[in-house]
Amino acid sequence: MSWDDKAMAKTILTVDDSPSMRMLLRSALTEHGYAVHEAEDGVAALEWLASNPQPNLMITDINMPRMDGFGLIEALRIKDQHRDMPILVLTTESSDQKKARAREAGATGWIVKPFDPEKLASAIRRVTH
């Protein structure tokens, strides 16, 4: 797998309540040269974003305790500093209804698990160029 030099400085916040999924994502993303930060749900993601520079991208699950992915995206889009941050949803959900809700909330894109690391990297390049 080749390194993407342009991605070296880019940071990604991954939000998923499953440590196993976060580990898998970290492995796939660092392989492509991204710096990865993790949050276990929407509340933890908001806390991280409040005290750190905005990442180049956030990848979030939908079904999470405390605050789900929809709530997280809506909370971010009403803040000026996060209005344009790319947000990819990575979820087991595939219904049109859920997809439409994510679009209305302000998500940039939608990926149904399981993900293909190369397709994920391609999607990241597209939304973070």
Binding site: L88, K99, A102, R103, A107, T108, G109, W110, I111, V112, K113, P114, F115, D116, P117, K119, L120, S122, A123, R126, V127
Partner: peptide, 10 residues
Amino acid sequence: AKGNGAEFFR
């Protein structure tokens, strides 16, 4: 089918 690709909204 190694995995799914992305659908973009914007």
